[in-house]
Design a protein around this nucleic acid. Structure first.
Lengths: 340, 340
DNA sequence: ATGAAAGCGCTAACAT
DNA sequence: ATGTTAGCGCTTTCAT
């Protein structure tokens, strides 16, 4: 790879000053059409491309947006990422995605690393503390997704409402003993779900058993199959679809049938939830809309720093095949184990 | 957000020259411990962080790596991404992931956009032409994953071997009419699979019917359910697990049972393939190893540009529940429809 | 319409 | 051990 051509090489080759070359690329209308085409030809010939980093140093705009997610392997994120990317592309921006591995320390490190290379960062389902987020927001413009931080623009999906609908659906089916499979520590969403589910259970005259915190993965759900059975719950609301699917898998190998013995509700409505057997009843999160909204907020944010709006997106209960009427009696297995 | 502190602010506050501040961060051993701690204190107090972009401009090293994938929503990629990230982190590098939406034009645009902001780009399952890739490699160091481009370092998974094993498995089970669900246009992997499957089918005295190209998604697989049935195939090898899962779904709604009527083999061994019913027989791709290898190649690459090695990783057939003996006769449905 | 000059934030010789 | 100087590649006044 030979060394890339700079603006100076192009200037020399086309016999003009570097500022003219610069204008040719960043303000073409300011340069004589003839000169322009000559410069363009030389640039083309030399394989010249403006150095975006150098440009950013002086303009203060990189035209990049950072997007930090907890776990790129969680199917919840890709639709959000893709929506954000397409929205960004329309506005002539690029999205750089990074994964924190659910680790708050990595999260912080990534914000610092991205800070000067992007015009802002979308912090998606962060696991770190609010105060740290506030502090980091002084280093680079931040938009938070799935978290409310005072003073910062945020996009949240009203998962509390979704959890309420889910629990109402279950109590409506006669369930009186409902387990909640909690998500990871530090998750705002997790707290919202718990708060809403607790209230809805009380209102529906049902008991809510909280199991967790758990890893928000199939494994996390799978591991709770036995605890769910022992708790004697006839219905379960899981922190997300992945856990719900893992749980169903685990219940299945314990001989517990879904939904005949136990009803299961997930949250997110990932594509996969339509492909499993039984198809998953779940709370649909408008992830794509959230991605778009976050990009919009970040970009308009630049113009007027006072509009730190917080957008709340509605969720929706999608009833499929993993929920059904509460069984007449508790599942037989439970009778023996519950008194341990 | 107040304007971020620069090296000059820190210099002024601590009463030293900016070069001393610079050294404090990039070569601490060259500065007097006392001075150092004073500078550090001032930096801390001012919230100063070195501007990585400015630093990169002069050092020529960004400590970033770009990773371009065709579709972040395809579960094939996340394990590769995560492995690459963790490997990069160990070497004090950050990975920026971008998604091309399976669009070659976006792919090219992203290479340009990333070029000066990263020290190299990992091009994962590219859809663009070899010649374009070669040309782009003059702009920024490239490591190609799942493609062989002469003169460029590459990491490929030996999917040809995997496809051969899969077809041998099927012919061994008595299948003589096998359908191949092709993947997207422009995919090197797709060509490899087709080549190997064709050869293996011939060797196994079986007929190979190629259906495609298709979108490498559940939808793509689902849409081929009817064609597969009409073709009278008793076994199918799909371009990837997603398509295999979609196909099984589609066959199911046509009343075709898997594996009793039709055997299905996927490729990739995504986590999901263990969770579907039936569990998917598939060719396991060492994606994590590929991600790590690619990062290593890119980083050592810098030292010696002549070592443009091409690494080939082995694949493996994982036999689960979606394959079985060929039915004695063709499935009943087929008899009626095949003559249309 | 083009050129000259300054400078974005930083590092890297070279002095001292 | 620290300061001086030049300059990475580019944009942006300000002249001409």
């Amino acid at each position: 790879m030979r060394v890339p051509a700079t603006i100076r090489d192009v200037a020399r080759a086309s016999g003009v000053h570097i500022s003219t070359v610069s204008r040719t690329f960043s303000a073409p209308h300011l340069v004589n059409p003839e000169t322009r085409s000559r410069v363009l030809a030389c640039a083309e010939h030399l394989g010249y491309r403006p150095n975006r980093a150098a440009r950013a140093l002086i303009t203060g705009r990189t035209h990049n947006i950072g997007l930090i997610v907890a776990d790129i392997a969680n199917p919840f994120f890709p639709p959000l990422i893709k929506a954000a990317e397409s929205q960004a592309r329309h506005r002539d921006y690029h999205i750089f995605v990074t994964d924190t591995n659910e680790d708050p320390a990595v999260e912080e490190d990534l914000v610092h690393a991205l800070a000067k290379q992007v015009d802002g960062v979308l912090l998606c389902s962060p696991r770190m503390s609010n105060s740290l987020i506030e502090q980091l927001s002084r280093e680079v413009p931040l938009v938070v997704i799935n978290r409310q931080v005072t003073g910062l623009p945020a996009v949240v999906m009203d998962v509390g409402q979704g959890a309420r609908l889910a629990v109402e659906h279950l109590t409506g089916l006669g369930h009186r003993r409902i387990a909640l499979l909690g998500g990871p520590r530090g998750s705002w969403t997790n707290r919202e779900i718990r708060r809403a589910a607790t209230a809805a259970a009380r209102a529906g005259d049902a008991e809510l058993i909280v199991l967790g915190p758990n890893q928000p993965t199939e494994q996390g759900g799978l591991a709770q199959a036995d605890p769910v059975r022992r708790a004697g719950a006839t219905a379960v609301l899981a922190y997300n679809d992945l856990m719900a699917i893992g749980l169903i898998e685990g219940l299945d190998s314990l001989g517990v049938r879904v939904p005949e013995d136990v009803s299961v509700v997930g949250i997110d409505d990932i594509a996969l939830s339509r492909l499993t057997r039984p198809k998953l009843t779940t709370v649909a999160n408008p992830t794509a809309a959230a991605g778009r909204a976050a990009v919009d907020m970040l970009l308009q944010h630049g113009d007027d720093r006072r509009t730190t709006a917080q957008v709340t997106l509605q969720t929706e209960l999608v009833i499929r095949d993993s929920t059904g009427p509460a069984p007449a009696a508790l599942p037989a297995v439970t009778e023996a184990t519950v008194k341990e």
